[in-house]
Each structure stands twice: as C-alpha cells, then as structure tokens.
Design a protein around this nucleic acid. Structure first.
Lengths: 115, 115
DNA sequence: TGCATATATGCGCAGCTATGCATATGTTGT
DNA sequence: ACAACATATGCATAGCTGCGCATATATGCA
C-alpha cells in the first residue's frame, strides 16, 4: 500500500495508529449502540423511561406512537440492554437498564446546545 | 385522550411528564447527533482523528475507504460540528472539534463491554 | 496554459429501517 | 372454554443511507 505524497505521517506511524485501532467488532458494536439513539421515537421512549417505570400502553400514549410501533422499539431497546422489563399480570413495565443513558443524553445535549 | 386501565399514572401525572419533555426540535437534534455516530466508517474516522490531525488521503488509507466516501462522511462531520478543517495548499487537514466525542466514545464502550 | 495532485460533489442503486396494519400470543376473569 | 385486555410479532412498503463511480473544483507547478 503506497503512501500518498501529502502525508505528514510515516508508514511506521500509520501502522502504529492502525494497530492501536479498536477491533472492527468493537467498532461495529459501538455503531450499533449509537444507532439505537439515532431515532427520535426511541429517544422519547428513553426520555420517559428516565422519569419513571412505564407500561407499554402509557408509553404509547406519551410518545404518541401506535402500540405495535412502541413494542418494536422496546424490543430493540431490550436486545441492546438499554431497558429492563417486568411482567405483572397482563401488563409489562419497562425501565432504564442503567444510568449511562442519562449521561449520554446530557453530553449530547451539551454539544448541540453550544452550537 | 383516554387513559388505559393498566396505567399507574393519573392524567395529571401524564400531563406533567409530557410538559417537561424536551421540545420535539431538540429531540430531533439529539437523534441527528447520535445518528452521526451510528456508522462504523464515521466512527473509525473519528477514532483516527482523536489520535492526530489528518489529511483526507491518509484518512482514506487508514479507514480503508475510497476517498470520495471519506469526503462524504467528513462533510457530514463538518455540518454536525464534530470536526474542524484547515486548508494548506492542496491538502485539507481535519481534526476533532472538541472533547465531547472522546467522552461519548468511552461511555459507550463501557456500556457495551459490561454486557 | 496545461497538467498532476488533493479534495469535493452529483447521481444511481442496493440494503437497511421505521411504520401501519393485521394478527398472534399471553393473561385474567367468568 | 370463552371473552376481554395488554403486548408482541409478521409482513409489506415508503423513505433514508452509505457507497461506488464518474466528474467537478481547487491548488500548485512547469
């Protein structure tokens, strides 16, 4: 692989940086992670769950989405371990898995607000 | 709007939570923000830029993407203010805009690593 | 001006994704 | 067993997205 003439870096430096690169699998994992936050509907769900535990029906009313749509998104949030759920009779209550979510929320808000 | 029978929340509580909801515009902004991180190619670009300032050609070689593809992603990263750029003759050097990016990176990594 | 280099843009397409809708599953009470 | 309710799933589709490709722009040099 040839080095372009504009490069400030030597082939050795290039190799070193590339060697320290997180594994492709981990990169893909990160991308999947962020992709989950890249949808307004899911973000709203996450926001409401950060306030209180909620059943699917209430969640659907709050985010103003159809119940099946909410269930689909909750499934994604379950698979990515962002939410826990607890069954009580017919109803299922969802809650946030941990506090990382709120952290991310705050940092991202900070970024977009400072232009 | 009727309240489903499974609800633990009163109509007043529902209204209160919804009232405190960030504006739809801000939610959309957040989603756009995270969407930028939801792509392995962009994540790799961000990773390399977190190491050092780089020109487009070197970046393309490092992430092993075609130059036009890298330029496209850099454009997105520019518009979302994740990167700065500086022209020097024919070459354009890109660098990270601020340190929020690394924070997000770390938090996300922590989340996916703890299962 | 002509040419090589470095980067950016326009366009078309394949693959993904969120949603609407119908329906299936599971639970409770009669 | 049946009905009503809460949630989940399957499927089709419209819209978005990242990439390949060709090409345009911009800079430097002879």
């Amino acid at each position: 692989m040839e080095v372009c003439k504009c490069s400030q870096l030597s082939a050795e430096e290039i190799d070193k940086i590339r060697y320290e690169m997180p594994a492709q699998l981990e990169i893909d994992g990160l991308a999947e992670f962020f992709k989950v936050f890249g949808d307004p509907g899911r973000l709203k769900i996450i926001y409401y769950l950060s306030k209180t535990e909620l059943c699917v029906a209430d969640l659907a009313r709050l985010v103003q989405m159809a119940q099946p749509a909410v269930s689909q998104q909750l499934k994604i949030l379950r698979l990515t371990r962002f939410v826990n759920f607890r069954k009580e009779g017919k109803t299922v209550y969802y809650s946030l898995h941990d506090e990382h979510v709120s952290e991310l929320y705050q940092i991202a808000l900070h970024h977009i607000r400072e232009l």
